[in-house]
Amino acid sequence: MPVPIDLAALVRRHQAGLWRYLRALGAPEDLAEDLMQDTFLVAMDRLGEDRGDAAAAAFLRRTARHLLLRRRRDLGRREAILIDLADAAWRRDCGEDDGELWLASLRACLDRLEGRAREVVQRFYGEGQDRAAVAAAMGMKANGVKTLLQRVRAALRGCIEQRIGGAA
């Protein structure tokens, strides 16, 4: 006999993973919060019955991705391609555990950062300073901060891929 959906339980179980997924696809925080709410409401309406966590998570991600594409359709085809690529990358790296292993690898890689790389990450991502403020605090130009952040991200990506590859 089909088990009806317990909406509160569904939200509590999946909201953290759905938030991470939407943010990884490029949704700003406010938009991600709005889309999370809409996604759960759609799920209540369309999911029909409780088919287990894996099926629910897949449905929620599909719906959230679709709602995000709709909200960002004005940004054109490139944005749609990027969302699709981000979705594929998420399913490859984070789909099974809501990104926990990937985050653990990131933490380990962050520990290896030193000097200006560590400082720029702390200021930009930790304290939420914009590029101009980071530049002023670190005695750099805004474009220099942009380049430094790009290099740090590329280094982190390489480190994480190495770790996950090694763990696999």
Binding site: V11, L18, R20, R23, F40, L82, L103, L106, V121, Y125
Partner: peptide
């Protein structure tokens, strides 16, 4: 990279978590 790390670094370094909706 920028998108995924924007989420991940703000969570790991900045302590940002999913809101309870």
């Amino acid at each position: 990279d920028a998108r995924r790390l924007d989420w991940a670094l703000r969570e790991v370094v900045g302590g940002r978590r999913a809101p309870d909706v």
